[in-house]
């Protein structure tokens, strides 16, 4: 799925230039629509709680991924990838989402786009491993940006 990042339009739309720039790791449009659900733009209670819940969810999912990597459970890895893909996509965390999607494919014994079969389980596992690491890095990155956005220095 192509990531819908059409920032210039967004801005022209309602002058929401006040929204933060996260670069390409966060899809502006998607994230903004969550920000818009905040009743109070100062508190940002709603979006903040969701984003922080996501942090928790991601952490625990990564743990599960690691555990399943250990167990070499490709199917679980795939479904964990799918799971985290869901929420990261919802928040517009494009990069994390993409990695999770890859993981989903790798776990399903496919290539990274999910189009070709990958007969070699070991290779799939290796792919998974790399992808999980990548996802973690990307997550850290985006987590920092978001924590900054929510003015939370304790991370």
């Amino acid at each position: 799925m192509p990531g819908p990042t059409q920032t210039q339009d967004v801005r022209s739309e309602d002058g929401s230039a006040g929204f933060p720039e996260f670069g390409d790791s966060i899809d502006q449009t998607t994230f903004e629509q969550i920000l818009e659900m905040d009743d109070d733009e100062e508190e940002r209670e709603f979006s903040k709680s969701i984003v922080y819940d996501f942090f928790t969810q991601a952490e625990s999912t990564f743990q599960k991924m690691d555990a399943n990597l250990e167990k070499k459970d490709l199917a679980q890895l795939s479904s964990l990838g799918h799971f985290l893909k869901g929420s990261s996509a919802t928040l517009g965390l494009t990069k994390v989402k993409d990695s999770c999607e890859k993981l989903q494919h790798f776990g399903a014994r496919k290539d990274e786009t999910g189009t070709k079969e990958e007969p070699d389980d070991e290779k799939s596992l290796r792919n998974c491993k790399v992808t999980i690491e990548q996802a973690k890095t990307e997550f850290k990155e985006v987590e920092q940006a978001l924590r900054r956005f929510y003015r939370d220095d304790s991370s």
């Binding site: 819908p4 059409q6 339009d9 967004v10 739309e13 309602d14 929401s16 449009t29 903004e32 629509q33 818009e36």
Partner: peptide
């Protein structure tokens, strides 16, 4: 795509 999306008011 974007149009409405941004401001879902």
């Amino acid at each position: 795509g974007v149009p409405g999306s941004a401001n879902s008011s």
